[in-house]
């Protein structure tokens, strides 16, 4: 049950701790030396936000709100800052966690199959995410079928086949270059015939600015609703944690085309922090559902808001935590 193991999150934090940049250390020193919340400290916090890709506007908004609270509620002690940050950043993140019973994902009771469509720009890790999702649903006790609707990229089918094999689930595919909507149609039809619980539709990477490819995506979605009125139940946009402010444009245009229900942030095991999802989540109310923290099949975790904020500001933990980190 790796994907639900909250201990695993320590790996993400570990990754972030290891590569802690100098700004963060600087703030650590300031927090400890000063113990007073002042303009300089808030500026430093703003810099942490900006360098985590939160974006200039959102960062300033968050800092403004903290400044306001410090003023009106009379916070003075720097040690209270972490709690303020967690509350304010948390308030910016739409909270709509994936339903679980602590060990397994719970698929909402709908007319079978529950259909999840995966979209995103090139190279963010859509196919890998589909493989890992298949594993998560499978180990949660559901029958899963994958639809290989990326018929464009060379060898995409082959890659997905290997993932399906690893997860031990079925896959529906057609020839390279086939109409992706027809693959989705086939997959749903076949899933209904086999009484499968969950269908995952992988789509080709596409830049959100390519209107013809976005039309193709709309068609894939439309076609599915023809066999199953509620399908797809989820449309997940996969975002690469290293992506900067362009992710906002991606989210907007994909949402316009296929109405997103959630985000998946991948590659959070590197040095990037994926802060851009804070702005997206705030502005569009699209919640983050999963995060990817490694290349292994059980490395896709359900999103935990507090843990995410902690990872962003790991360094501003209480005194105790700081000293533990220094020993590492």
């Amino acid at each position: 049950m790796g994907f639900l193991d909250s201990l695993k999150f320590s790996r993400l934090k570990e990754g972030l701790t290891k590569t802690r940049d100098s700004i963060v250390q600087k703030v650590q020193r300031i927090v400890r030396a000063k113990r007073k919340i002042d303009a300089e400290l808030l500026d430093e916090i703003e810099e942490i936000l900006i360098t985590s890709d939160v974006g200039a506007t959102t960062s300033m908004d968050i800092i403004d709100r903290i400044r306001e609270r410090v003023k009106s509620q009379g916070y003075e002690d720097a040690s209270e800052l972490m709690r303020l940050l967690r509350e304010e950043v948390g308030a910016f993140l739409a909270d709509e966690p994936v339903e679980t019973d602590g060990t397994s994902i719970l698929v909402p009771s709908v007319k079978k199959p529950y259909v999840v469509m995966i979209v995103g720009v090139n190279g963010v890790g859509k196919t890998t995410t589909v493989g890992k999702l298949a594993h998560n649903y499978k180990t949660s006790g559901y029958e899963v079928l994958i639809g290989a609707a990326d018929t464009f990229r060379a060898a995409a089918n082959r890659q997905l086949e290997i993932w399906a094999d690893r997860a031990g689930v079925g896959i529906i595919q057609q020839k390279p270059g086939a109409d992706p909507a027809s693959v989705a149609f086939d997959t749903l039809q076949s899933a209904m015939a086999r009484n499968v619980d969950v269908v995952l539709i992988d789509t080709a990477g596409r830049l959100h600015t390519r209107s013809n490819l976005m039309e193709e995506l709309k068609k894939i979605k439309r076609v599915m609703s023809k066999i199953h009125a509620e399908a797809p139940h989820e449309v997940l946009l996969v975002l690469d944690a290293t992506t900067g402010q362009n992710a906002i444009q991606q989210a907007k245009l994909f949402d316009e085309a296929v109405q997103l229900t959630g985000l998946v942030v991948t590659k959070l095991d590197g040095t990037a922090k994926g802060g851009v999802v804070i702005g997206i989540s705030h502005e569009m109310k699209t919640p983050v559902k999963y995060i990817g923290v490694g290349e292994q099949i059980d490395d896709l975790q359900v999103f935990d808001r507090d843990a995410f904020v902690d990872a962003l500001f790991g360094s501003l933990e209480t005194e105790e935590d700081v000293s533990v980190e220094e020993e590492l």
């Binding site: 590569t19 940049d21 900006i50 360098t51 985590s52 890709d53 720009v121 690469d240 944690a241 290293t242 992506t243 900067g244 402010q245 362009n246 992710a247 590197g270 040095t271 990037a272 922090k273 851009v276």
Partner: peptide, 9 residues
């Protein structure tokens, strides 16, 4: 499209 992390990488 890489964000702030581009410099580290």
């Amino acid at each position: 499209m890489t964000g702030q992390d581009a410099v580290n990488t």
